[in-house]
Design a protein around this nucleic acid. Structure first.
Length: 323
DNA sequence: AACGCGACCTGCGAGC
DNA sequence: TGCTCGCAGGTCGCGT
């Protein structure tokens, strides 16, 4: 469910509440939500208790909190400038995950999976709750490893030159200051596949899911089946700019929410859904065509076992992957 | 290398 | 009222 803008909304909210706080207790209400923690529940809890949260970092849809373990004299940077944090609490929201800040008195959510208690600070909620209806998301502890390109691992308040190991296989996302268009274009040209498949491949470009893939393609007037190895540089540039623009706009609106499944850490929905031009608009007129007096109806097709929305007029299907 | 598919889950609305 | 079906923002791992 949540794509980059939604995860970034969560990251910012979390950073405000949890940086510098120590984990005082962890309750795993459903072990399926930590199944990616291979060593089990006891080990998961043991890794977190007494650890201090240094930051909240994101690359694509992966979100992690570098931790200073108890006994570390100086959470944060060591005297030699090397960071002491070598492990992080990883969170992936999957299709329906939520990270909520709550006061202890608030009744447990129906799909509450993990409760993390934090050291009390005046006027700050004391619990971080992981709620997940479908359980495709989850939490686990992972180590931090150096990045391949030497840049920061992801976007955080005080970025580290390391990345959570479980996120190190994905490419930088378009909102990452270290995102490289050249690296993206090289990867895309090297693929022999359709454009949307490449956009959804997190190792080519990360953070884009089914909603923003369709939105970016619509804005760039490209069809999802366009062959990647024939993509012109100018088209690729337009596509990346479109992805950046639509995701920044969604971020400003607090993300895309169709229902109560996607909410920020305070439980509020975003309102970008009303600004979508393609996703979910089957049967409705294409706004761009309409604005120049053309009549065109958005259509929905199955692609990769999911829905794709296009305008048949301004996003024509390429013949043999070419125009 | 790329693909198609199933697996992992719950819940909602539509249609009968 | 209930049943079944299709559908939903994602990722991973398998066989081909």
């Amino acid at each position: 469910m949540p794509e980059l803008p939604e995860v970034e909304v969560v990251r910012r909210g979390l950073a405000r509440w949890v940086r510098g706080r120590t984990i005082t207790g962890v309750e795993v209400l459903d072990p399926r939500s930590i199944r990616r923690h291979a060593l089990g529940t006891e080990d998961f809890i043991g890794n977190l208790e007494h650890a201090t949260v240094l930051d909240v970092v994101r690359r694509g849809k992966f979100l992690w909190m570098p931790l200073a373990m108890s006994g570390s004299p100086d959470p944060g940077l060591g005297t030699d400038g090397e960071n002491l944090s070598k492990v992080a609490l990883m969170a992936h929201l999957g299709m329906s995950g939520q990270l909520l800040m709550q006061d202890p008195g608030v009744a447990d959510e129906k799909h509450l999976k993990v409760r993390i208690r934090l050291s009390p600070v005046a006027d700050m909620p004391q619990q971080l709750r992981f709620v997940d209806q479908r359980i495709f998301g989850g939490l686990f502890v992972t180590s931090l490893v150096p990045t391949v390109d030497g840049g920061p691992g992801g976007l955080g308040e005080t970025p580290l030159p390391e990345i959570a190991e479980e996120a190190s296989h994905i490419a930088r996302d378009p909102l990452d200051p270290f995102f490289s268009f050249d690296a993206f274009y090289r990867k895309v040209k090297g693929r022999k596949t359709g454009l949307k498949r490449a956009l959804l491949d997190q190792s080519v470009i990360s953070g884009i899911g089914n909603i923003y893939a369709d939105e970016a393609l619509w804005r760039a007037r490209l069809h999802y089946a366009k062959a990647t190895d024939t993509l012109r540089r100018a088209d690729a540039e337009r596509l990346v700019e479109a992805a950046k623009d639509v995701m920044n706009a969604a971020l400003d609106a607090g993300g895309t929410s169709f229902d109560s499944l996607y909410v920020n850490v305070n439980g509020d929905s975003g309102y970008f859904a009303r600004s979508l031009n393609a996703y979910g608009r089957a049967g409705e007129p294409c706004g761009r065509c309409e604005s120049i007096g053309l009549r065109s109806i958005m259509k929905r097709e199955q692609f990769m076992n999911r829905s794709s929305y296009t305008c048949p007029v301004c996003q024509p299907r390429p013949r043999n992957g070419r125009w």
